[in-house]
Structure formats: C-alpha cells, structure tokens
C-alpha cells in the first residue's frame, strides 16, 4: 500500500464537513481569534505605516502607509493560514485526535487535508478582509478594483495553509514549527516587498524573491489596492496555484505515510 501514499488527491464533497467543523469552532472562539490575527497586522499598519512612514516619505510614488497596506493584507493571509495549519491542525491531528474521529466516519485523508486547507484559506480571507476594511476606512485604498483582493486572499491562504501542512505532517511536536518560521516564514516576510520595494536589493536577492509565493501575492495585491495597472497577473497566479497544488499533494503524501501505517 506504500504506493497508495503517492496517489493524487481525490477529495469528495465531504471535505466540506471538515471545513464546516472548523467554522463552528471558530464561531465559538471568534473573539480571541480576531484579536490575535487581526490586531497584529493592524498594529503594523498603524505603527510602521504612519510612524516609520513619516521618515520614509514616498515609496514608488505613493505614501509609505499606502505601500505598506497591500503587504500587510498579504502577510495577514500568510500568517493566519500558517498558524492554522501548523498549531491548530497539529492539535487536531495528534492531541485531540479529531482527524482519527473523522477517519472513523466516511471521510478520507484526502477530504481532511483538503478541508483543512480550504479552512485555512477561509480564515485568511476573513482576516485579510478585516485589514482591507480598516485600510479602506483610513483612505488607503484607491477604488472598487480592490475587491479582487478577496479571492486572492483565499488563494494565498490555501497556498500557505498547504505549505504549513507539509511541515505539520513531518512534525514531531510543536517546537518543530520554529524552524519553519525562522527559515521560511520570516525571510519571506522580509524579502517579499512587504516593507520595501525590491528594486533596491542586489539582483540575486531579487531573483531569489521570485521563488517566494508571498512576493507574487504582493505583486498582485498592491496594484489592485492602489489603483495601478496589474502586470504579469498570469505568472503570479500560476506561481501561487503551483505552490498550492504541489504543497497540497506533498502534505497529503506525508500525512498518509504518517497516519495510515
């Protein structure tokens, strides 16, 4: 059956039951969840955007806080989805044995993994929407075209959720996630054009940044929020989809090897 581990994901409609379960829990614990996932990006936006922005002045022909807002929307999606598919999914996989209960019902690991990723995307969408709303209230959003950011937040959330699930599937415990944060999430956070445009960094860093999904997210979201012309959308979307699909598959392979022994 080891060969069965490599099978392409074949989720059924029941994946939605996994998603629905997580929505129900979220609704019960909504208040602390919103404060944590939505408060932090807001602080970044206000403190750095206005505080640091006062010194920086204009970036790429716009106020620094406007420049930053797009990055924070994307980062919020990344962080939300990553935390969800690391700590929370790990708890459901091991400590709480929620997945074991699901496997006793007519759910497959394909359903569970897809449901979890879809939920991470949904949660990212919720939190990014909140940030977008605040940015709009602060007058940092140009026009209605910014609504296209919402489906992108869902995509980003699914993408980062799937990547985090790969780590979760390999993880022997919660401490292991620090490697992922230190080696992947934080460098990506700093080098994806969230805080500063990449035009100023050496060529090799710029090339490397092309491999980071967050950089492609920012490239899509920033013009949509600032009312500029979207450039190379197909490439950016393809990279995000590519990461999402590949990471979903790899995480499913690893989860199968871990649980179906």
């Amino acid at each position: 059956m080891t060969s069965g581990c490599w099978q392409w994901p074949r989720p059924s409609q029941r994946a939605l039951a996994v998603w629905r379960r997580n929505v129900l829990v979220w609704r019960k614990l909504m208040a602390p969840s919103l404060v944590g996932n939505f408060g932090e990006p807001l602080l970044y936006l206000l403190a750095l955007g206005y505080g640091l922005g006062g010194f920086v002045g204009q970036v790429d022909g716009m106020d620094y806080v406007v420049f930053l807002a797009a990055g924070i929307v994307c980062t919020s999606a990344m962080n939300t989805a990553s935390y969800e598919c690391l700590y929370s999914a790990y708890t459901r996989m091991t400590v709480q044995e929620t997945w074991a209960a699901m496997l006793s019902a007519p759910l497959s690991l394909d359903d569970i993994v897809c449901g979890e990723i879809l939920w991470a995307g949904t949660k990212a969408l919720i939190n990014s929407s909140a940030v977008l709303l605040v940015a709009t209230a602060l007058g940092l959003v140009a026009d209605w075209q910014a609504l296209w950011v919402l489906p992108l937040a869902l995509l980003l959330g699914c993408c980062f959720g799937a990547m985090a699930l790969v780590v979760t599937a390999m993880s022997p415990g919660y401490d292991f996630f620090l490697y992922y944060f230190t080696l992947v999430v934080t460098p990506m956070f700093l080098l994806s054009g969230v805080f500063f445009p990449l035009t100023g960094v050496p060529d090799w860093v710029q090339m490397g940044a092309q491999l980071l999904p967050l950089a492609h997210g920012v490239e899509l979201v920033r013009p949509l929020m600032t009312g500029q012309v979207l450039d190379g959308a197909l490439l950016h979307l393809s990279v995000l989809f590519g990461y999402m699909v590949l990471a979903s598959w790899v995480s499913l392979i690893l989860v199968r090897r871990r649980l179906l022994r």
């Binding site: 039951a17 379960r21 129900l24 829990v25 709480q96 044995e97 929620t98 209960a101 019902a105 007519p106």
Partner: peptide
C-alpha cells in the same frame, strides 16, 4: 476523541455532518 470545543449535542451534530 470527542471534540473538546463542542457541547454534547454539538459533538453528535458535527459527527453526523461527517
């Protein structure tokens, strides 16, 4: 492996959802 975030009825309901 009951769901600690849910009540007795919610546990049954969510499981029925599966």
């Amino acid at each position: 492996n009951l769901d600690p975030d849910f009540t007795v009825t919610e546990n049954l309901r969510v499981y029925a959802g599966y």
